[in-house]
Structures are given as C-alpha cells and as structure tokens.
Design a protein around this nucleic acid. Structure first.
Lengths: 348, 348
DNA sequence: TGCAGGTATTAAAACGTTTTACATTCCTGA
DNA sequence: TCAGGAATGTAAAACGTTTTAATACCTGCA
C-alpha cells in the first residue's frame, strides 16, 4: 500500500502539503497551481489511495450510515432500501445494511456493531415490527441522528417517515364504494402492528361520512405473528371462515397485499371468481401485486420516496452534528396512491 | 469516548497489559487471574469499547465482507442475501452490501469503496448479469478472496457457487413428461444470460433420451434486457405470440418464474385455464411463486444454501490470507429441487 | 526602516490501538 | 552461588492520516 509519505517523497513536498492539496483543504488556497499539479501527478502515478481508517481515526468521519431492517425477506422493504441506497450514493455515503430478523438480540448486536463502526446516522426500517419499543428507546442515548420508516417513534429526538394510512384506506374504500359495493368484508391487521389502527380509522371515517354500514360479522382480525409473510396463510384462513358463515359480501378489503393474496386463493378455491364475483383490494403495492393474475388493486406506499426522505432527514442531522448544533429531526407523512388493476370491478 | 489508556489508569496497569488481557492475546497466558479480573472490571465499569479504526489501522483486520449484488429488486437475490448474512453473523463478520444497479460505473465505484474499506473478502451475486465480463476480470488483481454466486467465472482465482441448471430443467421436463405432456412450448432465456444454455441443454438431453419431440415452432427466446423483472412482460408477449400461431401445446416451460407469471397472465387472458388446459412450470422458486394462485410448480434453487456456501468458500480464503498461504477457491454446484404446486396437471 | 499581512511550506502532535523488545523479579537446578 | 528460564509487566514504536502552530519569504505601505 502506498502512503501519503511516499507521495510526498515522489512529489518533493511534505506530507502536510500533500494532504492539504489532495483534500482541497482551506489552506490549499495558498498553494500555487504548479505545486498542486505536481502533487496530483505524483499521487496518480503511484496510485495513492488514502487509508480510510487512519483518516477516520484522525477526523472522526466515516461517511457511512447504518440501516437496520427488521426483516429483509419482507418484499415491502426492498424498494425502501433502494430509495435509501440511491440517495446515499449521490452523497457519497455508504449504507451499512443489517437485517435484524425481528429478534431483539440481533437488534442489539447489530446496533452495537454499527455504533462501533461509528456510522454517522441511523435509519431504521420498522416494517412488521415485533421488537418491543423500549429497545428503540435506547436509540436516544447515542447521539447519532436517527430516522424511522414506517412507525411513529415515541420520542421526539428521532425522525420518522410514514405513509398516511388513514388516507390510504379511505382511497381504497372510496374506490369500492364508487363501484357499488355495500357489503364489504374486512381483514384487519394484527393489533400489535401500528398501521392497523389508522387504517381502520380511515375505513370508519369514510363509512360514517357516507352512510356505509359495516357489518361487524364481516370484520376479522389477523393474528399476531412475527413473520411478515404470515398474512398470506392468515388471509386464506380468515377468508375461508368468512365464506363458511354464508354471510354475503361482494368485496373484501385486506390489511395488506399478502393478506389479499391469501384471500384471493381462498376465494378461488371456493369457486368464487375475482373480480367478477368478489372484488379484492390490498395495501402496500409490493412488487408481487403487479405480477399476480389478476393484477391486484391496491394502495401504493411510495417506498423509494420514503427511503429518500429518511436520508434527507438524517442528512440534516449529520450537518447539525458537524456544526455542533443541536439535532432536531422532523416527522413526515407521505401520501399513498390508489393503483387500480384487475382485482376490483363494479358490483353486478 | 473512553480509551484504553483510561482503562489502564483506572485499573492501575499499563495499556499494554490491558490490551493483552482484553484481546486474550497469547501473552495473556502469563497474566494472573487477579490482574485480569481487575482489568475487566475497570473496562466494564467505564464502558470501554475499543476504537475499531485504531485497531484496524494497527492490525489490518476489519471483520467485514463486501457483498455486491447486481440488482436488489430481483426477488431471486433476497434469500441469497439472507443466507450470506446469516452465515457471516455467526462468524462475527459484518456484510457490507452494495447494489450495483447493473451499471458498470456503479460496479466500479462500489468496488473501489469496498476495497478502500478493506473488506477481507468479496461475494458477488451475479444475478441477471449485464455488466461485461472484463470488469469482473479486474477482481483478480486485488488479492481479496472472491466468490461469485450464479455465474461461472472465467478465471481460476475466483470461487463460484452455482445451481445445477441442467439437472433442474431435466427435473422439470421429466415432471411434465410423466404427466403425459408431449406438446410442450418453451420460453428460453435471453442469450446473454449464462443460465440460458445449460437449462436448454437439460431439456434437449431429456428429450433425446426419452424420444420426446421438440417442435421448434414452439420454442421462443426472451429478448435481452438489463431488468430482472422484464421477463414478465416478455413472457406475456411471447405466450400471446405462441397462441396466435394456433399450434397446440398442453404445457409451457418458462425460463424462470417471472416469465412463467407472464405466461400465466397471457393464458388466462386468452381464456385458457391453468393448469386444467395448460400446465406451466417455472425456474427459481422466488418468494412470489408460492403466493400466486394457482401456486407455481417450479425448480427451486437452494438460495440460502448458496449464500452460505459462498461464505464458506471465502472464509477459507480469509484464513489463507491470514496464514500467508496462497489462496485457492473452489467451485461448487448445488442441486435444485422440484417443487410441485398447482400450475401443473396431467394432460387430459 | 520597520512592520503588517499575504503566500508557501512544513515539523510535530494527535487520533487509539497492537506489538516488539526489553526490564524486573522469582524460581529452579546445578 | 549462579545461570538461565519462567512469570509479570511496561515503554515506545508503529499504523497513516489531518491539523495546529510555526517558519520564512515577499510585498507594500507608513
């Protein structure tokens, strides 16, 4: 490995000057062009690459951001990660991605690793979060700017990016309503998931405002589970139960896309055609949803944008730390978008 | 931040001794238990965490492995990444994941970043690889143990993990054949994908051996593309073309699962029921395949195992580097597994 | 003439480890 | 009594940067 001293020797200047020139430091203002040229030539000739560890040791900067995701296999998070990666890349930051497997111990271990590696910020993709909240409380102590995606933190010192869940379900039910559906079944999310309540609130608000009657017998809840793919099986099972009650419904609104997939399978098995005999709508718009036949009508979360937004929140925090200002992080709520595909149709 | 010197002061020993004890270095053999206890207590009391950058600067080890994936949004790679992550975690290594977006410039940039950060090994998930081979040739120069998943490297110095493509398609066509299918349509992969040739060879070998006649008019090729999700649209389009020729077929074998999804949509649109009127089989067994209705019969690549295998290959390389032995990396071919779901049925 | 201030450059300290080489004491066997 | 090894510990160098503080020269101005 070629060091700065070798570049110094080669160029005939001291390593101080080399450092100043190569980093374009403030002092380089006083260094004449000819000197700069010589140094740059020498550096290039030797193929000099500064040792990042020495550099970090000295000036404390790592140009890395820790990213913790609760479950990588959840298709919901891939586009978010893309958004994060893409935005960080522009800023020459390197994301360090860890997958917590929804386990407390892994969360703690990885958090430790990231802090040891002195990430300059932390982004937490809290999809399908099972870990208790107090773990997240620990985050406050470390004065690393932190943002959470998909969950409202209970503390002010952590930024957050959320989709507007209420608005999302309102759009979905509005769509079903407009298609003439009045007997609608609902598969609500598990109680421990924070998205569950606001999504249901959106439905209720719409129902109240538009005189839509909700049959409580057609409302079922997904069971708790730490597996983000489990809603498929649960959706299948609950839909089967729903069918057994013989209570008629012409549309079904699922907590998320995976639940919708399960529901579709159950309906199909029961000989009920989607969307001809029953419309189905999901939430999230994960990648699968487009490729399913029929394509799933769903509420899209702007996942890449959410990732990008989280980066921009923590960037602000990083600047604050640099300038020794106090860090304050904002909370953002992004609007979803209704994606109409083939799984919904007008009531016959 | 508390340094080793503060621990030294607190415990009453020199930082040398503290270092020896805390690292359990060979010399610690001579340090009496009482001393060790005192030092450990002091370290714990102060909450000492060694500065990894200082440590790396000194002893050159980073305990990180670079992982480069060509396209994160490809559902094929998520389980592989899980396998990699999980295995590295056991060994207290931290993966540093980069997404190359199938762009040459990003590949080079990220490679540079990873090398600057002195990753101790490199794992490349070469799914849906578009980047030219010579870029990969560059990898040889850096004497970092490297393994590739999903593609045979042209050089001996890089390890590789592949699925046995030939065996996979043989299993698939054997399955269709056993169900009585004789008129089978094929959607082959794009020519620039390395998997394409061996998969087709598996089909041909089986056909020859079992007297199955392949109608060349029923064999179409996917176009080239750098998007791993594009086969959906291509599969749809090609299947439509196939149907227009009016040439009968009772089964369709797709290059991969995405292609199969596209084919299923086309068939469904054309009023042809899967599997009653036409069986469809895919390749890969990405997560979607289970959740589609009907569930897709496909050839499963053992993705988590492939990831784990790649880690074990480079681990060997890391050991070699440590002991200053010459690094040699192996090539492994793993067996796929036929997953029979609902998209295939006996010919009527 | 003296001095203020800009320009050009560098020596040396500092960042926090690990490791080499050495120092001291204590024991053991001759 | 002494040589030499084992046990216990440390001073100092080294890893490769960045930055502070300093030096030296020049120019222009009072």
């Amino acid at each position: 490995m070629v060091t700065i001293r070798e570049v110094a020797k080669e160029s005939g200047f001291s390593s101080t000057t080399v450092s100043i020139v190569l980093n374009n430091a403030p002092l380089s203002r006083y260094i004449p062009e000819t000197t700069k040229k010589k140094i740059e030539r020498a550096a290039k000739k030797l193929g000099y690459r500064p040792n990042l560890f020495a550099r970090t040791l000295r000036n404390q900067r790592t140009h890395t951001v820790g990213v913790m995701v609760f479950d990588m296999t959840d298709p919901y998070c891939t586009p978010i990660l893309r958004g994060i990666e893409n935005t960080l890349y522009q800023a020459s930051f390197l994301p360090i991605l860890t997958d917590v497997h929804n386990e407390r111990s892994r969360f703690e271990r990885y958090l430790e690793m990231l802090l040891d590696r002195k990430v300059e910020a932390l982004i937490i993709v809290a999809n399908w979060l099972f870990v208790d909240i107090d773990v997240l409380g620990d985050l406050e102590k470390n004065n690393v700017p932190t943002a959470m995606i998909g969950r409202e933190p209970h503390t002010r010192s952590i930024g957050s990016v959320m989709v507007d869940n209420e608005q999302g379900t309102q759009m979905a039910i509005q769509h079903l309503f407009a298609l003439g559906h009045r007997q609608i079944a609902f598969l609500r999310g598990p109680k421990h998931i924070t998205d569950t309540a606001p999504r249901w609130k959106g439905v209720q608000d719409f129902a109240k405002k538009n005189g839509l009657e909700i049959d409580r017998k057609l409302v079922l809840d997904l069971p708790e589970s730490r597996d983000p793919l489990s809603p498929f099986d649960a959706g299948y099972k609950l839909t089967m139960e729903l069918l057994e009650t013989k209570r008629p419904f012409s549309a079904l609104m699922a907590f998320d896309d995976m639940t919708a997939f399960g529901a579709i399978r159950a309906l199909t098995r029961a000989g009920i055609k989607v969307p001809e005999q029953c419309s189905v709508v999901g939430f999230d718009d994960i990648a699968h949803s487009r490729y399913l036949t029929p394509g799933l009508t769903t509420v899209r979360q702007p996942m890449p944008e959410m990732g990008a937004m989280a980066v921009s929140l923590v960037s602000e925090g990083i600047s604050a730390v640099q300038e020794k200002r106090k860090i304050t992080l904002n909370h953002r709520k992004l609007s979803p978008e209704l994606i109409v595909r083939e799984s919904t149709a007008a009531v016959v």
